[in-house]
Amino acid sequence: MAGRAAVPGTKKGFSLPQVPKILVYVVGFVPAVWLFYQGVNDRLGADPMRYLEQALGLWALRFLIATLAITPLRQLFSVNLLRYRRALGLLAFYYALLHLLTYMVLDQGLDWAAIGADIVKRPYITIGMATFVILVPLALTSNNGAIRRMGGQAWARLHRLVYVAAIGAALHFILVVKSWPPEPLVYATIVAALLGYRLVRSLGRRAEPRRRPA
């Protein structure tokens, strides 16, 4: 079901000029390159490690949200960006990986005891780590070969884990801050809206047959 064959549907699609997918990666990595460049040149403020760590995590969440926005955009506004979804999802994974590496190498200095204690004792790190672990199989199977090997249905079922990852990422952000500042709540609201949309739609579809009895 993946690929372009499924796209030319009955709805008239909003036609966007197609850009090469590689461009999505190139543009997607601009924030990371810029952050590292500024970090190495000591331009990330008084606490550069923390700035880098948080910015990378935030970009991971943003790309995750972008990935989840593809389907509602298509269904509600007939904007079809499906061909870029894999790139966006993989970017979310790469940023999550950079975020994790920054935490392990720069923040904790590869102090495995401290990292282990954090994962076990700190719910926000437990959740962050679990979120990353969920993203790994999704990233590994984000290629045509995997879809072919697994079969479309099994692949789609596995990739529904992205919903869990999005909840984990939003929660991880809320739990890391003091008090209830607006920014993490705004991201959590967006995630809730994107997942809530799917829930409502699937409930509606399930309810439909009952509404028209034979």
């Binding site: 970090g39 190495v40 000591d42 990330l44 008084a46 606490d47 550069p48 490690m49 923390r50 880098l52 720069l106 904790q108 200095g109 102090d111 401290a114 204690a117 954090d118 004792k121 700190r122 719910p123 926000y124 739990l175 890391v176």
Partner: peptide, 23 residues
């Protein structure tokens, strides 16, 4: 005595080491 959400055992001294700050 840790903060319930994070450890208080170590700290980063601002201005020390930049990106490669040592706790």
């Amino acid at each position: 005595v840790d903060h319930p959400r994070w450890s208080q055992a170590t700290e980063r001294r601002i201005g020390e080491g930049g990106l490669f700050v040592k706790r």
